[in-house]
Design a protein around this nucleic acid. Structure first.
Lengths: 194, 194
DNA sequence: CTTTTAAGTGAGTATTCAGTCACCGAGTTT
DNA sequence: AAACTCGGTGACTGAATACTCACTTAAAAG
């Protein structure tokens, strides 16, 4: 790889980093391509040499992030069997990139079909991990018998709700951190051991 | 009231009705003032004689709707004591204006401070009704002792989640209708009678 | 050293919209 | 019936903002 190609790759990574931080700060929809270019210290037009359009930017950022979380969850599943532990680790994982996931929770309904499908697909994989974990616990008589699907939706619905309203409820600090105990407590209340 | 004033009032009400149907169809953010004027059969400028700006339109529509639901809930509380019954009636109430509430659930984070505060205030009143109903049930030993706050948030979080993703999950028909049984079942699972 | 290649530039284009204003004409008052 | 009032009109304005393209410049090739 020559000097030119190296520089281009470097600029590309720099752009991704800057774009992510801008999106986290103001959301994807409220960040203009000019702002990203300015923040990255490049010309506006240059952005479009690296990425086909604005959508391609968020797609790449999210693809990386969601793949990472999926990998981590899969590994957890392989290692841990305790549901509470799994939930706790998942919440910790979300918390690490909480700002970004909050943007996602808020803006998802406004994205185009393709992007939405991509995100919801990853999301559904993670949901299915929890589904299986609960189901297994019930089969092994570790927990009492409840409607697994609605329990999982209840769980993810709440997390999504807290995230989407993050900017309204609390401006500073982590919502996940704040509501973690009550989310875990309620799941335990719901599934308490027999 | 003379002929002119009568006409104006009539146009105003007509505008509110048309605006609501447009908002329900396409969402508040994706409906232009021109579209509303066109649909109502008036000139674009006329809209701004009746309403200070676009925000004022949705504020008035929602104020009416949310006040109605609040009144209804208060009456229910006064009459019924059974929590399941209350939840069922609340869901039916939401279902009646499901399209509008789905728009709300999706777009809320993008509204301005004032509008958001207004909506969340009404929302919190309704939440507090449920909070008190559960708390009372626990005190009277009707239900087992759980964390009331997180149970209520769990409940409202899920409803909000289903509503906000309505357009993604199902295009036709009612999400509330579809998920009503599982929402009620999960609440019962959580609070089952002692 | 000269020519070719391609990354980078930023003023410009196209489009979308909320909101305005000078004018019109129907309805009201004198 | 003349003068006045005020609701209605819609072309226009200005502000965003995603994306383009003719041109510059620095690196690579010959």
């Amino acid at each position: 790889m020559n000097k030119r190609q190296l520089q281009k790759q470097k600029t590309r990574l720099h752009l991704l980093k800057i774009a992510k931080s801008e999106f986290v700060k103001k959301g994807f929809l409220n960040t203009t391509t000019s702002e990203i270019a300015d923040a990255a210290g490049i010309a506006h037009g240059t952005l479009f040499l690296h990425f086909k359009n604005k959508d391609a930017l968020i797609v790449e950022i999210l693809d990386k992030e969601l793949e990472e979380i999926n990998q981590a969850i899969q590994q957890m599943i392989a290692e841990a069997v305790d549901l509470e532990q799994l939930l706790l680790q998942y919440l910790n994982l979300l918390q690490k990139e909480e700002e970004l996931f909050a943007v996602l929770a808020r803006e998802l309904p406004f994205y185009n079909e393709e992007l939405r499908r991509k995100i919801l697909f990853r999301d559904s994989i993670i949901r299915s991990h929890f589904h299986r974990a609960i189901e297994l616990g019930i089969k092994e008589k570790k927990y009492r018998d409840v409607d697994v699907t609605s329990a999982v939706m209840f769980l993810f619905g709440t997390i999504n709700y807290y995230l989407s309203l993050k900017s309204i409820f609390i401006k500073e600090g982590s919502v996940i951190e704040k509501f973690k105990p009550s989310i875990i407590k309620t799941l335990k209340d719901l599934l308490f051991p027999v």
